[in-house]
């Protein structure tokens, strides 16, 4: 049976969607064990299918060289064929260290995994590649929205404390929770509504449409650079790469950098008053029109249909 070791770089009161997707894929591929940076893993790990959980003696901070020891110790116990993590900086960094330690191959942003063959998008979504490791276990991060999350609650698995402590080299001086928008995380949302230059500084309609659809709010670089919305909302090659089921582009012309961040979305809808906007070349449904008229009507229609 294939052994899959899943790495969680953080563990809140509940599993994130990405973490649920990781466990779902791991369960499809084989038997699951989990390793966390948290010395006292939360009850969020009470999920069916997790055989064992490995934890350090004390919390290991991001950037600490001891992350390699933690993962290598867990790998020595679990003897994994695959080590999986989320497509985040912290998971990538820890798995990157493990790959050096095990002299194994690392593949980031996987979209599907069969055996040890990984398929992913490269060059900002322009190409699809398949690759496999040369010897050693496969170490990979999984792009959000690649697998439909399906985890079942279970009992809390046995927790094994490994003889690993933080090295002391890295000190976590401060940690503050960023203000919550109450919306799903942009990188893992199933619906994204994104605004650009065309919103002319006012994101309220974009936000209302996102809320009506239960989606996240994104933005083009022009909009974040103008200070209309926080940088964390930026979709594109230097921002967040998204691949939702539905992406609605509002007042964004669709320059290369922006397209790079969203062109693997399931369905793309574009609203723009300029009929020559490049975004219409990749839109499944395009509306040439004034967003201040189109969006309120769409919201009204969505509400009406929900009531009927």
């Amino acid at each position: 049976m294939t052994q899959v070791l899943v790495f969680f770089e953080e563990l809140g009161a509940e599993l994130s969607i990405s973490q649920q997707e990781l466990l779902t894929l791991a369960g499809q591929l084989g038997e699951i064990s989990v390793v966390t940076t948290s010395a006292e893993p939360s009850p969020a790990l009470a999920v069916q299918g997790i055989g064992s959980v490995y934890a350090p003696q004390a919390d290991v901070p991001p950037g600490d060289p001891a992350l390699a020891d933690l993962l290598a110790e867990a790998a020595a116990q679990a003897a994994p064929d695959l080590v999986l993590g989320a497509d985040t900086a912290d998971a990538t960094d820890a798995l990157a260290r493990l790959a050096v330690r095990l002299e194994a191959g690392l593949i980031t942003s996987a979209e599907s995994i069969e055996g040890t063959t990984v398929t992913k998008s490269v060059l900002a979504g322009a190409y699809t590649t398949s690759a496999q490791p040369v010897g050693g276990p496969l170490i990979a991060t999984l792009r959000p929205n690649s697998v439909p999350a399906a985890v079942q609650p279970g009992s809390l698995p046995q927790i094994t404390t490994l003889p690993v402590s933080p090295s002391g080299a890295v000190e976590l001086l401060e940690e503050t929770e960023l203000p919550s928008t109450g919306r799903p995380a942009l990188s893992e949302a199933r619906v994204v509504v994104a605004g650009g230059r065309g919103v002319e500084g006012d994101f309220s309609l974009v936000e209302q449409l996102a809320d009506e659809l239960g989606g996240a709010v994104g933005a083009s670089r022009a909009a974040t650079d103008a200070g209309w919305i926080d940088h964390s909302a930026q979709v594109g090659q230097t921002g967040v790469i998204v691949s939702p089921q539905l992406y609605i582009s509002v007042g964004i012309s669709g320059a290369v950098q922006q397209k790079a961040g969203m062109q693997t979305s399931g369905t793309i809808v574009a609203i723009n008053k300029d009929e020559d906007a490049p975004v219409f070349e990749i839109a499944d449904f395009g509306i040439v029109g004034d967003l201040t008229e189109v969006i309120p009507q769409a919201i009204e229609e969505l509400r009406a249909r929900r009531q009927s």
């Binding site: 790959a99 002299e103 194994a104 191959g105 690392l106 593949i107 063959t117 998008s121 490269v122 979504g125 322009a126 190409y127 699809t128 590649t129 398949s130 690759a131 496999q132 490791p133 040369v134 010897g135 050693g136 062109q263 693997t264 793309i268 609203i271 009929e275 219409f280 070349e281 990749i282 839109a283 499944d284 449904f285 395009g286 509306i287 040439v288 029109g289 004034d290 008229e293 189109v294 969006i295 309120p296 009507q297 769409a298 919201i299 009204e300 229609e301």
Partner: peptide, 26 residues
């Protein structure tokens, strides 16, 4: 440590239906 097996251009997205707002686009 990783062997690339294949690299293929993603099929271009076909443009879909484009409408001009006639007052019912929403």
């Amino acid at each position: 440590k990783v062997q690339l097996l294949s690299a293929a251009p993603r099929p271009a997205r076909e443009p879909g239906e484009i409408i001009h707002d006639d007052g019912t686009a929403g």
